[in-house]
């Protein structure tokens, strides 16, 4: 009883700022912008934006994969270090998150833009400037840069918890370093991989600022479109429908991920 009371404030918070807004989103998505009457036309209109949805998911998937490939070795290395050193290295990973997300992205703009630091350097060397900004590559770069810590955190936590004796047991049973990794360390870090991918994929798929600053005219993401429906096109009903669909999409992705790793997750908590 006491415990239930303790969660009270959070429940109120959830109701006020999550549940009610969700209902409002649902209401807008299912009503006409002019008359306010019930309609499915907003949802029907979504198919025009299908390529943008697809691109958003694609870029988010690519970013998640790159984050995983970059983040795993880092997380592994931190987990192997001496405890005092681990705290320091972990702090280094977290450090960029102390700086505003907007500032970090703007910093990339001034690095990458045509008259930016990198291209100025290239020009100074007498070479042709490179098209570093306003393309999908720059967007992925921005996503990877901003969300990499979210990948490293859960990976580090899981890898650190792997019993050192299991590694020794694998060595004892004939595994060299590579096979210890493939047969023991990697399978046991699956829960960390799943939550890392989730934590990168979800914000990446709905981001708008990164693509606005680093992307080009052809690389608008679904987040950008939703934002413009509310702020520029004054069609919050269509925007709400898009948000709803995006949410369903994200939930579906998470469900799929948890499905094929649920078994291992249970194992890893032993």
């Amino acid at each position: 009883m006491r415990n239930r009371l303790l969660s009270g404030p959070y429940l109120v918070w959830m109701a006020l700022f999550t549940l009610i807004p969700l209902v409002i989103v649902l209401y807008y998505a299912l009503t006409d912008s002019a008359t306010g009457s019930f309609t499915l036309s907003n949802l029907a209109a979504l198919h025009n934006y299908f390529p943008i949805f697809l691109r958003s998911v694609w870029l988010a998937v690519v970013s998640s994969m790159i984050c995983l490939l970059l983040g795993y070795p880092v997380a592994w290395r931190i987990a192997q270090a001496r405890p005092s050193r681990q705290r320091f290295l972990y702090m280094l990973v977290m450090l960029p998150m102390c700086i505003s997300f907007l500032l970090r992205t703007l910093a990339w703009v001034s690095l990458l833009e045509d008259t930016g630091i990198i291209n100025n350097l290239i020009r100074a060397l007498g070479l042709r400037p490179l098209p570093l900004i306003r393309n999908s590559g720059a967007v992925v770069l921005g996503m990877v840069y901003n969300y990499l810590p979210y990948m490293i955190m859960p990976l580090y936590t899981v890898i650190m918890k792997i019993d050192r004796r299991l590694v020794e047991a694998a060595q004892d049973l004939g595994c060299d370093g590579r096979r210890v990794f493939l047969k023991v360390t990697l399978p046991l870090s699956v829960p960390g991989i799943v939550s890392g991918i989730t934590m990168v994929f979800v914000p990446a798929v709905s981001t708008f600022y990164i693509s606005q600053k680093l992307g080009g005219p052809g690389t608008a993401l679904i987040g950008d479109v939703i934002e413009s429906q509310f702020k520029a096109a004054y069609n919050p009903n269509l925007g709400a429908a898009m948000s709803l669909f995006l949410m369903v999409l994200v939930l579906a992705c998470i469900a799929v991920m948890n499905k094929f790793t649920g078994e291992d997750e249970r194992v890893a908590t032993v």
């Binding site: 299991l166 004892d172 060299d176």
Partner: peptide
């Protein structure tokens, strides 16, 4: 000689069985 090349096997304290 590293452990994986020794003709020796170990029963570890608290077993160290692979949970996966």
């Amino acid at each position: 000689v590293p452990p994986h090349k020794r003709q020796v096997n170990t029963v570890f304290q608290r077993y160290a069985l692979f949970p996966h």
